[in-house]
């Protein structure tokens, strides 16, 4: 066995035993790259020295967690998905008196605010509650603030228009120098809190779950467990939206979902036409 692969295993074991964080079911190639990146960021030279710091420095953990979570996103990423949510999913949600939405793996919050804007424009925001979760506290803090770099706003504005936005994207933020701050009214019905998909359980009855580009970091077994968690959390007819290149064909739990728009990875729990299993 390759020495570096042994070190990765020791890293995973140290995170588990010392801090109770289980990365053993993460997809190996991505995990390895992120651990290598941690070595560079913290200039530890080797993974084993990184492990040493994890074991002996109590305040080091948040920085490791930050390096292992998925902070990259943008507002209205994949505009076609948000257009489909607007056209196909919100009309379904409109039939409920109260709408619970779980944004799982919200990272820096770009999709939370995108969703909030979508709900506002559909007149559904007042009866909606968005639970935005992540296992990275630093990301949650940034998501709560809703401050982003101005240079990103131009592309997000294009995305917003492509997604079928009814107003101007600039209506939703104030710009100051190099930063924009999202209108904080957009989060009046949003609750940000720490939830770990690997270890934590269902906490609400959801009508819509968004979890885009998070399960791609999980093994087949952990992907299946998480899809089971989503299925248990969703009401009958509830909607699940994943990243546009995710593949749930190997998950037994996916058998509970039917396509609303298969190409955009938007699914519905139960009903006829639930997915067949393919190997």
């Amino acid at each position: 066995m390759d020495v570096e692969d042994i070190e990765i295993q020791l890293f995973v074991r140290a995170m588990q035993l010392r801090h109770g964080h289980d990365f053993s079911e993460y997809a190996p190639a991505s995990l390895k790259r992120r651990v290598q990146q941690l070595v560079r960021t913290h200039d530890t030279g080797t993974i084993i020295e990184l492990v040493n710091r994890i074991l002996h420095e109590d305040d080091f953990l948040p920085r490791v967690i930050e390096g292992l979570s998925v902070p990259v996103s943008e507002m209205f990423r994949d505009p076609a998905v948000f257009r489909a949510l607007r056209d196909k999913v919100l009309p379904v949600l409109a039939s409920y008196p109260e709408i619970n939405i779980w944004q799982a793996g919200c990272a820096h919050g770009q999709e939370v605010y995108s969703l909030a804007i979508l709900l506002e424009e559909a007149g559904l925001y007042e009866r909606s509650r968005i639970y935005a979760t992540d296992f990275n506290d630093a990301a949650l803090a940034m998501a709560t603030e809703g401050i982003y770099a101005t240079r990103d706003a131009r592309e997000w504005s294009r995305n917003y228009i492509e997604a079928g936005g009814a107003h101007s994207f600039s209506d939703y933020y104030s710009a100051r120098y190099d930063f924009i701050k999202l209108d904080q009214r957009l989060r009046r019905n949003v609750t940000f809190f720490n939830h770990n998909l690997v270890t934590d359980e269902v906490f609400c009855e959801a009508h819509l779950i968004l979890c885009r580009n998070v399960l791609i970091y999980f093994s087949n077994a952990l992907q299946d467990r998480t899809l089971g968690l989503f299925r248990d959390s969703l009401v009958r007819g509830g909607v699940l939206c994943l990243g546009t290149r995710e593949n749930i064909d190997f998950s037994p739990a996916a058998a509970g979902f039917a396509d609303i728009d298969g190409a955009l990875r938007i699914y519905q729990v139960g009903g006829s036409g639930a997915r067949p299993l393919r190997k």
Binding site: A27, A29, S30, R33, V70, N213, I216, R245
Partner: peptide
């Protein structure tokens, strides 16, 4: 490429 000759994707 995973070591068991499967693909994976990420958005790092």
């Amino acid at each position: 490429v995973e070591s068991d000759a499967h693909f994976s994707l990420n958005v790092d």
